[in-house]
Simulated scan of single mutants.
Amino acid sequence: MDLVMAGLEPQAFWAAMAVTLFAGFVKGAVGFAMPLIMVSAFSAFLPAEVALAGLILPTLITNMSQAFRQGHAAAIGSARQYWRFLAGTVAFILLSAQLFEHIPRMAYLLLLGVPVTAFAALQLSGLPLALPLRHRKGAEWGLGVIGGLYGGVSGIWGPPLLVYLLSIGAPKVEAVRVQGVVFLIGAAALLMAHLGTGIASPERLAFSAALVVPAMLGMQFGYKIQDRLDQALFRRWTQALLVLTGLNLVRQALF
């Protein structure tokens, strides 16, 4: 048991397991927010390095389930369709991971939390807000790069993708599958990057592996909710959750 606890007190370890169970449930229901919830909660009682390493394997395994839920052919098709977003995300996760110890936490939390909260809140209020995607290729590259920049230092690269999918009005099943594909490849890149930085040490990866169990359990319950949501309700849940996660990022930065 000591091997998977990464030197943590039992209370902290079991709190991390509970947080991951809830994060898995939310991810199963709406397709995202696992790293956001885990990072937000973990920051209250775990060292930053342990928190970042802890989310790597649950993110990798749950996104494998999500990406391939409709089969390999559908997942490969999504990867081909959104290859620009994927390329930008992966390249900049690998680059920004090297800066983990040099970027002030307040800076990246505010720079991510404020625009995401504003965008999602305006959409939730009924304003027909969408990114100008006449030049869709440029938007994919740009948002992929932004996601990668945040992903390497925080383990969070979902909000830019969610902004993009909301802007193009992607159907529920496609949106969830695309998130799984992008997050899966991004999680693999994050693991490779932090094997190099030393953050993904054997002890921390053992802790991360333990968190896979509650993550997958929660996700199976979440799938049952997702299957019952129609497109309009799914979109509103996504917008509302983006607002809450964005506000929480701002809260962490300021307090």
Rank of each mutant, 00 (worst) to 15 (best):
I199S: 03
E203S: 15
A188K: 06
A188G: 15
F183P: 12
V181Y: 01
A200Q: 02
P202N: 06
R204F: 05
S201D: 01
A175C: 11
G186H: 00
E174S: 13
G198H: 04
Q179L: 15
L191N: 05
H194R: 05
F183A: 15
G186V: 02
Q179C: 14
Q179I: 15
V176W: 06
P202I: 07
E203R: 14
V178R: 06
A187S: 14
I199L: 12
A193R: 03
A200W: 02
A206V: 07
A206W: 04
G180P: 00
G180I: 06
R204S: 03
V182N: 07
L191H: 08
S201A: 12
H194E: 04
L205V: 05
L191E: 05
V176G: 07
V178S: 08
F183L: 15
A187H: 01
H194Y: 09
H194N: 12
Q179T: 15
A187N: 03
F183E: 15
G186T: 08
G186A: 14
G186L: 00
R204H: 11
P202T: 06
A175P: 10
A175L: 11
L190S: 15
A193E: 04
G196W: 02
A175S: 15
H194G: 04
A193W: 04
L184Y: 02
V182M: 11
S201F: 02
L184T: 10
V181F: 06
G186N: 03
G180S: 06
A200N: 07
A188M: 13
R177K: 13
L195S: 07
L195P: 10
V178T: 14
E174I: 01
V182H: 08
H194K: 02
L191T: 11
V182Y: 04
G180L: 09
G198S: 07
H194F: 07
A175H: 13
M192K: 12
R204K: 14
A187M: 00
A193D: 08
L205Q: 03
F183H: 14
E174V: 09
R177I: 06
E203C: 12
A193L: 05
I199N: 08
E174Y: 06
G198F: 09
V182W: 01
I185P: 12
G198D: 01
G196M: 04
A200S: 11
T197N: 08
L190I: 11
A175E: 13
T197W: 12
V182P: 03
